Every structure is written in C-alpha cells, then in structure tokens.
Amino acid sequence: MSTGSGPTPPSPDKIPRTERGRKTLRKLLDAAALEFGERGFHDASITGITRRAGVALGTFYTYFDSKDEVFHALVRDLSGLVRDAARHALEGEHDAIGTERAALAAFLAFAREHKEIYRIIDEAEFVDPASFRSHYETTALRIHERLQRGAQSGELRADVSEAHAWAIMGMNVFLGLRYAVWSEDLEPDEIAGIASDLLDRGLASR
C-alpha cells in the first residue's frame, strides 16, 4: 500500500518516534490488511500478521495490544488511504461533475490494487461498528462538501443535499464491488464516465 497520510496507532504512547518505527508500523498495517483480507477477522492471527510483515512477535506489541486494536487501526488507515487517493486525483482544475468522475476513477483504481478493503470494511460492521460507521460518514461528508461547492458555483442544482452524497457513495461502492473486486472488464475511467453521465443528467444546474 502507499504511505498515504501515514498510519495512526490507537494510543499516544505507541506513536513511533523514528522513521524506522513509522516504516515498521506501515509494514504491520500492510500485513494486517493481507491477513484480515484473506482469512477474515476471526481466523486471522497476530502471528500471521508478524510473519507477513517479517517482524518478531514482540514487535507487534510495541504498536498494538491486541488483534482488535490492530483491526481498528487498519480500518481507520484504509479509510485514510481512500481519502488520500481521491485527494491526489483531484489536484488541478476540475468542474463539479469532473470532480466526482476523477474521485470515482481514483477509488476504483485503489480498490483494484487493494481488493481486501471490501472484506475488511464489511467485517468492521460487526467487529468495529464505530469505525465502520465513521468510514462511511466521513466519506459521505467529503462528497457532500464537494457537491455544496458545486452548487455554490452554480454548476450543480441548488438543492443538493446530504442524501445526494450518500446516493453517490452507494453507487461508487457497488461499482467498485462489481468492477474492481469481482472483475476488471471495464477500465476505471470508462466506469467513471458512465457514472458522471448519470450525475450530469441528475445534478447539473439547468
């Protein structure tokens, strides 16, 4: 995985102070993503994570106290990486509809590289409900803020709402499931173009 905005461990006393420590934490989170993604939360193990990361078992406890704790950190980390992928894609000039198109294409590309995100986020609903809800609420909030900017500029209809943001997020999630996890038979830009055409017809200011 990319380093994104950087992982955040669950407690202040475990924040790595050195670059080496930050790299080790990154390796543990990447290994946890593979372990949980392949085996699921209940069958995954701390030894499986450390083996994948290539570190000693004791190293794990320098950063996390339990399997639950690393899972919690992983959900937050994945959510941050999705956010950063969209942020990088939106650098430069985009109109309101083009912004959503670029954000979706970036998400689809990210999901193709990290298919395990779907299983991990889905399991979070039961293993870590607070992080599950936060992931979707913060994602919807970012979309809503973008839509509001489009409405303020006159590009989008004036009545765009939070519900519109959740509808767009739902579309994006299931497009990712179909065209990033289950198959890759259409390119991300093509899928994003189809979705943005729907948005243009439904949200653009007339």
Rank of each mutant, 00 (worst) to 15 (best):
S2V: 09
S2T: 06
T3V: 11
G4C: 07
R17V: 12
R20L: 02
T24E: 04
R26D: 13
R26N: 08
D30L: 06
A31V: 09
A32Y: 01
E35M: 08
F36E: 02
G37A: 07
R39L: 13
H42Y: 13
S45E: 13
G48W: 13
T59I: 01
F60G: 05
F60K: 04
F64G: 13
H72F: 01
R76V: 01
D77A: 15
S79Y: 04
S79T: 15
R83G: 12
D84C: 05
A85I: 08
A85Y: 07
H88W: 01
L90P: 12
E91Y: 12
D95N: 15
A103T: 10
L104D: 04
A106R: 14
F110K: 00
F110G: 00
R112E: 07
E113L: 06
I120T: 08
E123P: 12
E123Q: 15
E125L: 14
V127D: 00
V127H: 03
V127M: 06
D128E: 05
A130G: 02
S131C: 10
R133M: 09
H135E: 03
H135L: 12
H135D: 03
E137N: 11
T138W: 10
R142P: 03
I143L: 15
H144N: 08
H144T: 01
H144D: 06
H144E: 08
H144L: 11
L147K: 01
G150T: 11
A151E: 06
G154T: 11
E155H: 03
A165H: 05
N172T: 12
L175F: 14
Y179G: 10
A180K: 08
P188F: 10
D189V: 03
I191A: 11
L198M: 13
G202I: 06
S205Q: 15
